[in-house]
Amino acid sequence: MAATTTTTTPSNAPANAADPGQFVELVDIGWDQYVAISEAIGERPNPRLIYCDRRLEIVVTSRRHDWFAERLGQLVVAVASGCGIRWEDAGTATYRRADEEVGVEGDKTFYLGPHAEQMKGAVDIDLDSQPPPDLAIEVEVSHSANQALKVWGRLGVPEVWRFDPLRDRVTFWRRKDDGTYEAIDRSRGLPALTPADVLEQLKLADAIGAGEWFARLNDWVRDVIRPRPDQAR
Score class of each variant (00 low, 15 high):
residue 54 R to A: 05
residue 190 L to F: 03
residue 190 L to N: 15
residue 126 D to A: 15
residue 91 G to C: 13
residue 142 S to Q: 07
residue 202 L to Y: 09
residue 82 G to K: 13
residue 127 L to M: 13
residue 173 W to T: 01
residue 209 G to R: 10
residue 100 E to R: 02
residue 124 D to Y: 14
residue 122 A to N: 00
residue 146 N to V: 01
residue 27 V to D: 11
residue 186 R to N: 09
residue 13 A to V: 05
residue 182 E to W: 01
residue 147 Q to E: 02
residue 32 D to T: 10
residue 141 V to L: 15
residue 185 D to C: 00
residue 180 T to N: 04
residue 8 T to C: 12
residue 33 Q to T: 00
residue 122 A to H: 06
residue 12 N to F: 09
residue 82 G to F: 07
residue 108 K to G: 06
residue 30 G to M: 11
residue 58 I to W: 09
residue 117 E to K: 01
residue 224 V to I: 12
residue 40 A to I: 02
residue 133 P to D: 14
residue 57 E to K: 08
residue 161 W to T: 00
residue 181 Y to W: 08
residue 198 V to E: 08
residue 101 E to C: 08
residue 17 A to Q: 10
residue 81 S to K: 13
residue 229 P to H: 02
residue 27 V to T: 15
residue 73 G to M: 15
residue 196 A to L: 01
residue 7 T to M: 15
residue 172 F to Q: 08
residue 227 P to T: 05
residue 51 Y to E: 14
residue 72 L to N: 03
residue 170 V to F: 00
residue 46 N to Q: 10
residue 155 L to F: 15
residue 207 A to H: 10
residue 223 D to R: 09
residue 117 E to C: 06
residue 148 A to F: 02
residue 2 A to E: 14
residue 6 T to C: 03
residue 43 E to S: 08
residue 4 T to W: 04
residue 98 A to K: 03
residue 27 V to H: 14
residue 91 G to Q: 09
residue 226 R to C: 08
residue 115 H to P: 07
residue 146 N to D: 11
residue 19 D to Y: 06
residue 198 V to P: 09
residue 5 T to S: 10
residue 58 I to Q: 03
residue 233 R to E: 09
residue 225 I to W: 04
residue 136 A to W: 00
residue 40 A to V: 01
residue 73 G to P: 12
residue 14 P to W: 04
residue 40 A to W: 03
residue 97 R to C: 12
residue 164 D to G: 00
residue 167 R to K: 09
residue 148 A to I: 04
residue 163 F to V: 02
residue 216 R to A: 11
residue 7 T to W: 14
residue 110 F to L: 10
residue 53 D to K: 15
residue 217 L to I: 09
residue 61 T to D: 04
residue 117 E to M: 10
residue 14 P to C: 07
residue 75 L to D: 04
residue 75 L to W: 02
residue 150 K to W: 12
residue 94 T to S: 06
residue 203 K to Q: 14
residue 126 D to I: 11
residue 199 L to A: 03
residue 50 I to R: 15
residue 134 D to L: 04
residue 211 G to Q: 08
residue 11 S to Q: 15
residue 55 R to T: 04
residue 226 R to N: 05
residue 35 V to A: 07
residue 34 Y to G: 06
residue 21 G to A: 05
residue 226 R to Q: 04
residue 200 E to I: 01
residue 222 R to Y: 06
residue 105 E to W: 01
residue 124 D to K: 10
residue 32 D to P: 15
residue 58 I to T: 10
residue 226 R to S: 13
residue 41 I to M: 12
residue 202 L to N: 10
residue 131 P to C: 03
residue 78 A to Q: 06
residue 214 F to H: 05
residue 37 I to A: 11
residue 31 W to M: 06
residue 141 V to R: 10
residue 25 E to T: 08
residue 61 T to M: 07
residue 73 G to I: 01
residue 118 Q to A: 11
residue 118 Q to T: 12
residue 154 R to P: 11
residue 218 N to A: 07
residue 92 T to S: 11
residue 31 W to G: 08
residue 161 W to C: 03
residue 134 D to W: 06
residue 177 D to V: 07
residue 212 E to Y: 03
residue 155 L to R: 14
residue 122 A to D: 11
residue 231 Q to I: 09
residue 158 P to Q: 13
residue 23 F to Q: 12
residue 164 D to Q: 06
residue 153 G to F: 13
residue 222 R to V: 02
residue 194 T to Q: 12
residue 17 A to N: 11
